Computed example of a mutant assay.
Amino acid sequence: MSRIAKVQLVKYSHLAHERGLTAAFGGNLSVKNENLIFIKATGAVMDDLLEGGVAVIDMDGRQLSGVRPSSEYRLHLAIYKRRPDVGAIAHLHPSYSIVAATLLEERGSLPIVTPEAELYLREIPIAPFRPAGSEELAEVTADVLGGYDAVLMARHGIVTVGRSLREAFYKAELVEESAKLWYMMRSGNAGNERKNQMLT
């Protein structure tokens, strides 16, 4: 199973970068197998991640591999402990989602635009800002994800969960699509308001 988990992490890490869901050193994916967590190593880049760049830790956060886990390992551990039904986590930094989380932080959630998003996500709440890699970020995000499968993190990115990494990844795509559609609709409405003002 350890080889399968690493192969999955490499595949979906490359796909996340290819589809614009993260850039540079940002983002990390993880897979849980019994008491082991497979996660991108610190300093690794998702675009060219290899199996050697996958770290292994246990549910207490102890490093079991030759490479150190991402600084966001606390976030992944907190979610796995809070949600025993979750088998994989995607934490990514897609552009529209970050913009939406910043603009909608006070509202507390991203409006659902499509029937697909409503079916698979129900709601996309926004977790308040906490410093990246901190225990505070891990706890507040895990709290919000207690009843949902996706969350926007204010000024940071998104987290989605699933029984498999495939499921978590495609939920992340769905969140970014929702954020992009919302932003396009918002921009269109703003344009219409300006036109109406010019005509009056």
Rank of each mutant, 00 (worst) to 15 (best):
G27C: 06
N28W: 13
N28C: 09
L29C: 08
S30V: 06
V31D: 00
K32E: 02
K32Q: 14
L36K: 15
L36A: 11
I37N: 04
F38Y: 15
F38R: 00
I39C: 10
K40I: 08
A41N: 07
T42H: 11
T42F: 11
A44I: 00
V45D: 10
D48M: 01
D48S: 15
L50E: 14
G52C: 09
V54P: 15
V54L: 07
V56G: 02
D58M: 02
M59C: 08
M59Q: 14
G61K: 01
G61I: 01
G61Y: 08
R62D: 09
Q63V: 09
V67Q: 02
V67F: 10
R68E: 10
R68V: 14
R68S: 15
P69R: 00
S71F: 08
S71N: 12
Y73P: 11
Y73K: 05
Y73M: 02
R74E: 07
R74T: 07
R74Q: 13
L75K: 13
L75Q: 03
L75C: 06
L75N: 11
H76V: 11
L77I: 12
A78L: 04
I79H: 07
R82K: 15
P84Q: 12
P84K: 15
D85S: 12
G87A: 07
A88M: 00
I89H: 02
A90N: 02
H91R: 05
L92P: 13
L92R: 03
L92D: 11
P94D: 07
Y96S: 13
S97D: 04
I98Q: 04
I98P: 14
I98L: 04
A100M: 07
A101E: 00
T102G: 09
T102P: 07
L103H: 15
L104T: 06
E105H: 14
E105F: 11
E106T: 15
R107M: 05
S109D: 03
S109C: 03
L110F: 08
L110W: 03
P111I: 02
P115N: 11
E118W: 13
E118S: 03
Y120P: 02
E123G: 00
E123H: 03
I124P: 02
I124R: 00
I124D: 00
I126W: 02
I126M: 04
A127F: 05
A127Y: 08
